[in-house]
């Protein structure tokens, strides 16, 4: 079917994309893998083939604790964003009846996504701080005598900000899945005697699996690779794998950071591979 010229056209059209991925994705990741075997001193990195960086990394209990902490953050954030995101999407898709309102409310949810994450983190300070709005209000209401210390610079504030920033990544794909559900299936389910709740759990939930999987992949990979939120919102009290890497980088221990990066990459890819079993992304477009 395709003529010679049009095949060349196709390759020509796709070359810029391929080049960007080659130069700024494939080669850099390969560089990380190579450098992770290098030797280093306090001032320079020395080409070598050592397993020392990995040994030091994997034999340190700090590494394991940090990975555990990061996975814990990812898991808690995943559960919360899923529960909240699913509820919001369900409301938008099945309870808001006019298409215009649906669009408007959807837009309301998505607009903050276009603004700066770092600024959105800072915005919590006047809210959660020792003399912040939350503490002031609670004290005025007489619910507490002393300001709550755990509100800011704690694991609580880290997870709160994760939920604040990333719930949207759940809402959009789940909403998308829900909008594709044939409404007659729901009527059939109700006619067959199912309650709304049974319809939700037995019809809607299974049909939303692809959307849930896509949202989960986004949320989990972002949290697994995050260090800004952890550093800013825990005030240096909590750790994450990426923060550990960033610290090694600032000490110019590039090979150590690279080894950690390789391990993190493998962990993330394993998690994603598990989630991908649920969804064929190409079919979702």
């Amino acid at each position: 079917m395709m003529t010679r010229t049009s095949r060349w056209t196709t390759y020509f059209q796709v070359t810029p994309l391929a080049l960007v991925f080659l130069i700024f994705l494939v080669i850099p990741i390969a560089t990380i893998v190579v450098v992770s075997f290098f030797d280093y001193t306090t001032t320079s990195i020395i080409p070598a083939f050592l397993s020392q960086n990995y040994e030091e990394l994997l034999l340190s209990p700090v590494t394991w604790q940090t990975y555990l902490q990061t996975v814990e953050f990812a898991l808690i954030t995943w559960v919360l964003t899923f529960l909240i995101g699913f509820t919001l999407a369900y409301f938008l898709a099945f309870h808001v009846r006019s298409a215009t309102w649906q669009q408007v409310l959807f837009l309301v949810c998505t607009i903050p996504f276009w603004t700066s994450n770092v600024i959105r983190m800072i915005s919590w300070i006047p809210f959660l701080g020792r003399n912040g709005l939350a503490n002031m209000t609670l004290m005025k209401m007489g619910l507490i005598q002393q300001p709550l210390e755990f509100l800011l610079y704690s694991n609580f504030s880290v997870v709160l900000v994760y939920v604040h920033l990333y719930t949207l990544f759940m809402v959009v794909p789940i909403f998308n899945s829900m909008m594709r559900i044939d409404r007659s299936l729901l009527e059939a389910s109700l006619d067959a005697g199912a309650t709304s709740w049974q319809t939700l759990t037995n019809v809607i939930l299974p049909l939303c699996k692809p959307g849930i999987a896509i949202g989960s992949i986004f949320v989990v990979t972002i949290v697994m690779g995050d260090f800004v939120t952890v550093r800013m919102m825990s005030g240096g009290l909590s750790a994450s794998v990426a923060l550990m890497m960033a610290n090694a980088m600032s000490l110019l221990q590039y090979p150590a950071a690279a080894a950690n990066a390789v391990v993190l990459l493998i962990v993330v890819l394993l998690i994603v591979a598990g989630m991908m079993r649920v969804v064929d992304i190409r079919k979702e477009l």
């Binding site: 991925f21 850099p28 990741i29 560089t31 990979t221 950071a257 990459l265």
Partner: peptide, 17 residues
Amino acid sequence: ASLIVPSILISLGIGLL
């Protein structure tokens, strides 16, 4: 892959490269 590889790794990789 470009979407799911954590941003910090891409940053690190390009920086190292």
